[in-house]
């Protein structure tokens, strides 16, 4: 589907089509040539990690239903190898924070995140977990889950469509491919003010 003039203040229309900037970023980084052994091994590791991201079944409210839809027959995230949902945080790779996080839930989420084994990723799904969403004014809602745990990908929507979630997952895969297993301290800083956003409308 063609994306036509969408008016969002902080994002240009062209940016919606720009999905490959992470790949281009890698190319740029690797221009000068790197060690062939570690590079190739890195590629293999990243290939494995990015293609086997097991989600943790975590949902607090509405977005959880859309997450179930992603798992079900129509959208089927098994195609990407994501369908091994683990109920124990120890075995999961990514946590979809789908739904509102309240003050009472915040320490629980933090604990769950701490229980996960490295490498671990966080996808903030839906308005509530990005910024508090419709409940921003509430006295008991955490305005953005990134106040508690680091977030890799934001998927906006209230709730986001399953397609948007799939897009968010693919963005995470792209991001994992940037990792540097053998030179952890020199991990490229990709945040520089830009965040990946899945889902367009």
């Amino acid at each position: 589907m063609e994306v036509k003039d969408i008016k969002i203040k902080s994002m240009k229309t062209e940016d919606f089509k720009d999905n490959e900037y992470l790949e281009k970023y890698i190319e740029e980084l690797q221009k000068e040539g790197l060690n062939i052994v570690t590079e190739k091994l890195d590629d293999l590791i990243n290939w494995g990690r990015s293609n086997s991201v097991w989600p943790f079944t975590f949902a607090t409210s509405c977005c959880g239903i859309e997450f179930m839809c992603v798992a079900a027959a129509r959208h089927d995230f098994a195609r990407f190898g994501w369908e091994v949902t683990r109920n124990s945080p120890r075995q999961a790779d990514v946590i979809f924070v789908s739904g509102t996080i309240t003050y009472k839930m915040a320490p629980v989420l933090k604990r769950l995140y701490d229980q996960m084994a490295e490498p671990k990723y966080v996808i903030a799904v839906g308005g509530c977990s990005i910024s508090g969403g419709p409940f921003k004014e509430s006295y008991h809602v955490v305005n953005g889950v990134d106040k508690i745990i680091p977030v890799d990908v934001y998927v906006p929507g209230c709730p986001p469509r399953p397609e948007a979630m799939l897009y968010g997952m693919m963005q995470l895969q792209r991001k994992i491919k940037l990792e540097n297993f053998f030179k952890l301290p020199k991990r490229p800083n990709i945040s520089n003010g830009q965040t990946e956003e899945g889902g367009t409308k």
């Binding site: 607090t60 739904g99 509102t100 309240t102 009472k104 839930m105 409940f135 509430s138 006295y139």
Partner: peptide, 14 residues
Amino acid sequence: FGYIHRGIEKMCES
């Protein structure tokens, strides 16, 4: 209860 208490009723008042 209360892990997803968002105070909707209070928000409605404003």
